[in-house]
Design a protein around this nucleic acid. Structure first.
Lengths: 335, 335
DNA sequence: GTGAAAGCGCTAACAT
DNA sequence: ATGTTAGCGCTTTCAC
């Protein structure tokens, strides 16, 4: 009907009250008299009034927005975390501004920008490669890490990465493997290092050999898994099993060696990490470690919400359990 | 340093100019004298001043935000489109507020909410199942569809879906298949219908039979592809080839029949749709139709940006080409 | 329980 | 080329 949207003034005029009363009716209905409240709500309905979030935010010195900073938006790994975040943030009237650290030139500068721009009530960080110094900014909003991170003193939601690696090694050892290789994520990434440490520690604990040639560097992508597959095919002294630091790499590896005529798990056993949806649909199914990604998002959002509400810059951290999922890609070693 | 962030007043005071000059220096540097500009920029640097986006937006009657409405955030299909959107929107100083139509109860109400709330300068719609009536709202911001849609009169970025289906059928027919089945997306979805129509039309054009039993309903998910695989395994009169309306379904189908001992493509040929990253890493590689998803996002964002800048509610539509990708999952029919 | 009034921080006429 | 001024629409003391 109306050409332009109604303001609080219009509602006040129609209801015959002041703008203050309209505002109160909408935010704290209990403090206004029943009859006034009804008059106001009628006027709201009549005009189709919605509060202007920008004006409200300016007045209340908040933004209504949470920034989510992730390394790479195109990586489907994050979409489920985002879904978890949204399920908590949306009901709390907080929008998610999603930004990608890889699209620009200087990721840490991007982070600093968001922290100082006053554009957000809080920030959720999904990129573990940024350095903690970037967070040392006075007056910054609360931050929750939903990833591993160099400095471990911030509120965070993390996953039992080292234990996951140990579970993988234990499973393979129990099947009889003694020559176990590993494909890492990108060096420098905290996830990579944590899983690698867990892998090495488990090997040592079980008295299994660790050959440097059996640790290949990847970058979590399918392509890098395929490259690892080619490297494995070219080895004279192949490990009989591999633990790969992501399911995506496991898929790339699997496809590559299968196309070369290698049978999985008869000729080589494979364990991934993540339990992405496709893991169960491969042939053979991918044995892997489940990370509950939606839950990571949910908990991170809840933590941040609590900090925003209390105005605190600190808060608890949380460790989320992983679960070992046995499918067909790991079996007994070849005779 | 400072406890609270500097305002434009602080900068003006330090630089010895008015706030208007500070504002101008930052938005249209060319109109202020060089010496003043330098003084202002020095003061900006000294105070670490950043414009308060909320205040700026309120004053300029804009929001600095674009809402992206998609059916399901957890679906990795959208992440690349989002990456494309972000690559255009971020440099234009527009944030993306991402919302999920499936998380709440009433998707159309959600859409209406975003359209009327004045929280966005524009909206990008990735959900083709919402009805066009929901957009008939006075004073709404510009909208771009990045999906198929019931009413075809809005600015949109779409893909040659029907032609993609025809390419798939043509390829299979050329290999010698005469019994070609299809697994659809969810009924009612516009993508589903368009591809189905393309499929039927191509069959007819080539004089190939269309058996109703060979058209199975899926929902684009791997699980539904696996279900289609089980259905196919149970058929007495199996088609020798299938065109599946998404790669995810093709993957589910492939895994399911392979686990049942069926060889692909020797026993059955498969063609998917999308060319998701994993398609090339499967064994056999998945023959499919490529949709340039990043580009879809880029073009949609560019269209919307133009509309926001000109204040127009209409604009051109664009059809993005698909490309047929031959890999190993489709071969000659079994003898 | 309700109203008056003072800004939140910024930009864009309009003056000069 | 720069300053003055009037708000954008809202929330929140502070009175009554």
């Amino acid at each position: 009907m109306d050409r332009k949207t109604a303001t609080i003034q219009d509602v006040a005029r129609i209801a015959g009250v002041s703008t203050a009363t309209v505002s109160r009716t909408l935010s704290k209905p209990s403090v206004v008299a029943k009859s006034t409240r009804e008059a106001v709500l009628d006027a709201v309905a009549e005009t189709g009034y919605r509060v202007n979030a920008t004006a409200s935010n300016l007045r209340r010195q908040r933004t209504g927005t949470v920034i989510v900073l992730l390394p790479n938006l195109a990586n489907p790994f994050f979409s489920q975390i985002l879904a978890g975040l949204a399920s908590v943030l949306t009901p709390a009237q907080l929008g998610m501004l999603i930004a990608d650290t890889q699209s620009g030139p200087d990721p840490e500068e991007r982070l600093r920008h968001y922290l100082t721009s006053g554009q957000a009530d809080g920030l959720i960080l999904l990129d573990g490669t940024l350095s903690p110094e970037a967070l040392a900014i006075p007056g910054r909003p609360p931050v929750v890490l939903a990833c591993e991170w160099m400095g471990h003193d911030l509120p965070s939601v993390r996953v039992e990465n080292a234990r996951g690696a140990a579970l993988a090694v234990g499973h393979l050892a129990r099947l009889g493997h003694r020559r176990i290789g590993h494909v890492t994520g990108p060096r420098g990434n905290v996830l990579t290092e944590t899983r690698l440490e867990g892998f090495c520690a488990a090997l040592q604990e079980l008295g299994l050999p660790l050959d440097d040639h059996w640790v290949l560097e990847g970058d979590f992508s399918m392509d890098s898994g395929a490259a690892a597959g080619r490297a494995w095919l070219g080895m004279t002294d192949r490990p009989t099993a591999l633990f790969l630091s992501s399911d995506e790499m496991a898929i790339g590896f699997l496809g590559e060696v299968q196309r070369a005529g290698i049978r999985v798990p008869e000729d080589v056993s494979i364990v991934g990490f993540d339990n992405i949806e496709i893991a169960q649909h491969l042939s053979p199914g991918l044995t892997t470690i489940r990370q509950p990604r939606t839950q990571i998002g949910v908990r991170a959002a809840e933590l941040l919400l609590a900090m925003i509400e209390t105005g605190s810059l600190t808060g608890p951290s949380e460790l989320i359990e992983v679960e070992f999922i046995v499918r067909g890609s790991a079996g007994v070693p070849p005779a």
